[in-house]
């Protein structure tokens, strides 16, 4: 599955953006953006080698199975696909992963997680959405909970998070809830991103731009 693209072909990849631009907008250095390009090319060439990550390629990279259906992976793909054109371009990949960087602002992580859970894009996390997500998790795991227990857990979650008591969690309530329960953001930080250049060193060796010049 591995591939190597020379610098001369790199600039003709659709959706490619200059590492210096992406480094300026994200927590990554230029070298790290170039290392991410190596990862991006590997994922985006898994099925269709067109320089774009398709949903099936994203699933294949996550689960080693392109047919694997997963509500949360689907939601993450949709949020990475900022232009909503059905594919993830390189710039979208880097900007979205930037939110998962250990040094990214917590507010960005909170906002991303809120959008992830706001399944119907209403600006609120509603009870029905939360139950749908819990049931999806139970369906994909070996965890067995009775419907009564699920209802109790959702009731208690809402009584804790829905401080205005209107039956839905808005972004302000979400921020306050996460502040009291910071473990809810643990999936929003990827320690791998701190040493991405060690995992994907090829581009660092041939980097065109010295980070110290930026």
């Amino acid at each position: 599955m591995g591939c190597f693209h020379s610098k001369s072909t790199l600039h003709y990849t659709p959706g490619y953006e200059e590492p210096t631009v992406l480094a300026a907008e994200t927590p990554f250095t230029v070298s790290e953006v170039e290392a991410l390009y190596e990862l991006f090319k590997r994922i985006s060439s898994c099925i269709i080698d067109d320089g774009l990550i398709h949903r099936e390629e994203f699933q294949l990279a996550l689960f080693r199975n392109q047919k694997m259906e997963n509500l949360f992976a689907d939601r993450i793909f949709d949020l990475f696909d900022i232009k909503r054109n059905g594919v993830i371009e390189f710039g979208e990949f880097v900007r979205s992963l930037g939110i998962f960087h250990p040094n990214a602002p917590v507010a960005d992580k909170m906002s991303f997680a809120f959008k992830l859970y706001d399944l119907r894009h209403t600006g609120y996390i509603e009870r029905e959405e939360l139950k749908e997500m819990v049931l999806a998790l139970l369906h994909e795991s070996d965890l067995v909970l009775s419907d009564d227990v699920v209802e109790i857990i959702i009731d208690e979650t809402f009584s804790d998070a829905d401080s205005k008591g209107d039956g839905r969690i808005d972004s302000e309530e979400w921020k306050e809830f996460v502040s009291r329960n910071p473990s809810l953001l643990k999936n929003m930080t990827l320690p791998y991103l701190m040493d991405i250049t060690l995992a994907f060193p090829n581009f660092v060796v041939s980097s065109e731009v010295d980070d110290s010049e930026i």
Partner: peptide
């Protein structure tokens, strides 16, 4: 119970992007 619904959801492997960085 201390378990909240978001803790349960966060257990999904679909949420774990670290597997993107694993090489075959």
């Amino acid at each position: 119970t201390c378990l909240n619904a978001f803790d349960i959801i966060s257990l999904s492997p679909g949420f774990d992007l670290s597997s993107l960085f694993e090489k075959d």
